[in-house]
Simulated assay, not measured.
Amino acid sequence: MKKYEAMLIFLPELEEEKRNSLLDRLKGIIEADGTISNVDDWGSRKLAYEINDYTDGYYVVINFESTPEAVKEFDRIAKISDSILRHMIVREEE
């Protein structure tokens, strides 16, 4: 398994309950084939540039080990979710 880091930017007005529900769903995808080492909740921050008329976003960073198939499913779910403004998954160096 390889190490990855995922950054998610949620809509700023999204209710905490809905954000946590989606985050739990994404974490479940990872934990089915791997392990999560750290979830860092950065909270609400100003975006570097405007995205879809939003100037703020709610940031969450997840460090995990998983299979490439689980990462593809994580990416697919993050892409189709209307509650996520942007996401990025990068593979960490060994």
Rank of each mutant, 00 (worst) to 15 (best):
T35W: 05
Y54H: 14
E73A: 07
K79G: 06
G34D: 04
K46I: 15
E93G: 13
I77R: 00
L47S: 06
I36W: 06
I36K: 00
S44G: 12
K3L: 06
I89T: 09
G34N: 02
W42T: 11
N63M: 06
N38K: 15
Y4V: 02
G34M: 03
V60R: 00
E73T: 00
H87L: 04
E69R: 09
A70Y: 06
V90E: 11
E93F: 09
K72D: 08
L11Y: 10
E5Q: 06
L26K: 03
L8E: 00
L23R: 03
V90L: 15
R45C: 12
A32I: 12
P68G: 06
S37M: 10
L8A: 04
T35C: 06
G34T: 04
A70C: 07
K46A: 13
V90G: 08
K72I: 11
E73M: 07
S44E: 15
F64T: 02
Y4S: 02
D24F: 15
Y54W: 12
E92D: 10
G34C: 01
L22I: 05
D56E: 14
I29G: 00
E16Y: 12
E16I: 12
H87Q: 00
N63A: 02
I30Y: 02
L11T: 08
N20K: 14
I77W: 02
S37K: 07
P12Q: 04
M1P: 05
N38S: 09
F74A: 04
S66C: 08
D82F: 06
I30D: 00
S37L: 10
E31Q: 13
E65R: 05
S81N: 01
